[in-house]
């Protein structure tokens, strides 16, 4: 097929599919913990990290990862202080991140540099970024498989998980770090939009079909992969922006599923 003769499209498919597998894995835990917006919060914070890295002369990607980890723990911290309104923690950290990024970016001398780190696009991925995504995908997948049961308990109900003898704090700790690293790297590579939407939309679709946690995870991953592949095809042949197209394909599919379920449900009753 013509679309696959270009290296940049091949990379887009490879990286896109890798991320479509791991981001919903993180997403389902995040959604169940009522932290759906964490992807947005962290990707905004990572901008501040990039600016900080550039100002201090540290590797900006490292700066982004570090600040993302701090922000993710900040979210965890606030969430525990105000457990009833856990989404508030995200709003606080997100505004802190945007504010910090805004102020710090004023101090960055060379915006060319800044822009090249801000700017992520699924159709312009360097080799280094591809390996980075492959590495992080491997770790996330490994952690998700090894901690499968633990994450399930923790995301459902932390208190009973603790009673069942699960090291809740350790599991949360590992998961928070993985989330932070994934978001900071993926947002730089494919853009924040794709990352934050793949975290939630496929999970919402998976929940429409899944009758158990395991089924939901599998359906979420399948839908994320489908959205990414279809989105890339559509954006290639219709000359559309790839990030937005992938997101819209996802949201439209979700709407379609919800509507058909309603109609089917009505005709059954």
């Amino acid at each position: 097929m013509e679309i696959f003769q270009y290296a940049f499209m091949q990379k887009a498919f490879v990286v896109g599919i890798m991320l479509a597998v791991i981001i919903p894995c993180i997403g389902i835990v995040v959604v169940l913990k009522r932290l759906s917006m964490i992807g947005d919060a962290l990707s905004h914070t990572s901008l501040a990290g990039i600016a900080a890295g550039l100002i201090m002369g540290v590797n900006p990607v490292l700066g982004a990862i570090l600040l993302c980890i701090i922000a993710a723990f900040g979210i965890e911290f606030i969430r525990k202080k105000i457990p009833k309104y856990s989404e508030m923690s995200i709003a606080i950290i997100m505004s802190a991140g945007i504010g910090l990024a805004g102020v710090l970016s004023g101090f960055v001398k060379n915006t060319a540099n800044f822009n090249s780190f801000l700017f992520g696009s699924i159709v312009a991925i360097s080799d280094f970024e591809m390996y980075l995504v492959a590495g992080i995908s491997f770790f996330v997948l490994l952690a998700f498989i090894f901690l499968y049961k633990e994450l399930f308990y923790v995301s459902m109900d932390e208190r009973s998980a603790r009673l069942a003898g699960i090291p809740v704090n350790t599991v949360n700790f590992i998961f928070t770090i993985l989330t932070a690293i994934t978001v900071s790297i993926a947002a730089r590579t494919v853009g924040a939009l794709i990352v934050s939407s793949l975290m939630v939309v496929p999970v919402a679709c998976g929940m429409q079909f899944g009758k158990s946690y395991k089924q939901t995870v599998i359906y979420s991953i399948i839908s994320a992969v489908i959205f990414t592949v279809v989105g890339l095809f559509v954006s290639y042949y219709r000359e559309l922006k790839p990030g937005g197209t992938i997101v819209l394909v996802g949201v439209m599919t979700l709407l379609f599923i919800i509507l058909t379920k309603r109609i089917m449900g009505k005709s059954l009753s």
């Binding site: 679309i3 159709v123 954006s235 290639y236």
Partner: peptide
């Protein structure tokens, strides 16, 4: 303007 996301179809054309 620089720094906007290009669409893949256009990139293929240019390649």
């Amino acid at each position: 303007t620089p720094d906007s996301e290009p669409n893949p179809g256009r990139m293929a054309e240019i390649i």
